[in-house]
């Protein structure tokens, strides 16, 4: 009897976990839909710049950060030094340091769940988790978090694979469509920038963009990025 109850309890626990995981995957659906075309554009652009499809897929599977990955492509296209790209990527990703502390009180105690979830903690996954925080009062289940993270990650890697594998064929058979996919990179940066605009950030961001654009026009891209960011932080500090 006792053994039967234990079996029923464990079966109920497994069912609850599966159901939570499925809910996490459902919550990832809008992210996955958004990620797929961007990841395809990344895969196609990476192959166009000389990476093997397997290398492009590996970049997405290991890094899983859109801005950093497209930054790598701009370096490959412009011949910028790779160490500078690594530093810039680290600086761009500094904003991720803010996400963990904001979510910490609602994450499970389990270390493995936190560190697995951390791998998938992109801007969009953070936003989805934050949205759930305002509607669900209890701690997030491990299965829900991993379902959410996996859904986003799988879409990103699958999109890259498709873009990488079809990119060359697209170039050969549909050159206009291939040229159009080249617009994905500026469009992505414009979109991410737009989504970070707020009353508080607008002026510093405009200053940063202006300095970076002028320097890029003159051929000093890296200097422009650092000088623009420094000016933005200075303006932000003076306005506080």
């Amino acid at each position: 009897m006792g053994r039967g109850n234990a079996f029923l309890r464990s079966e109920a626990a497994v069912t609850a976990r599966l159901s939570n995981g499925a809910a996490g995957l459902r919550a990832a659906a809008p992210i996955a839909i958004g990620y797929f075309p961007v990841a395809m554009a990344f895969g196609a652009a990476a192959v166009k710049l000389g990476l093997e499809p397997a290398q492009a897929i590996a970049v997405s599977a290991l890094v899983f950060a859109g801005a950093s990955q497209f930054l790598l492509l701009t370096a490959l296209a412009s011949g910028n030094a790779l160490p500078i790209v690594v530093v810039l990527s680290g600086l761009v990703n500094l904003r991720h340091l803010l996400y963990g502390p904001i979510l910490l009180d609602r994450l499970p105690q389990s270390g493995y769940a936190r560190f697995l979830f951390a791998f998938a903690l992109t801007d969009e996954v953070f936003a989805a988790t934050l949205a759930r925080r305002s509607t669900v009062p209890e701690k997030f289940g491990t299965a829900w978090l991993l379902g959410l993270g996996f859904g986003a990650y799988a879409s990103w890697v699958a999109g890259t694979a498709l873009g990488g594998l079809l990119g060359e064929a697209l170039e050969r058979d549909a050159p206009m469509a291939a040229e159009a996919t080249g617009f994905a990179l500026p469009a992505l940066f414009v979109a991410i920038t737009w989504l970070n605009l707020s009353r508080e950030t607008a002026i510093p961001m405009a200053a940063s963009a202006a300095v970076a654009a002028v320097c890029a026009w003159l051929g000093y891209t890296t200097v422009g990025l650092f000088a623009g960011a420094a000016l933005a932080c200075l303006i932000h500090g003076m306005r506080r």
Binding site: L71, T193, A212
Partner: peptide, 13 residues
């Protein structure tokens, strides 16, 4: 501000 500023700069370049 560093993250948004760098993103704006990256968009510009």
């Amino acid at each position: 501000m560093l993250g948004p500023a760098l993103l704006a700069g990256l968009a510009a370049v």
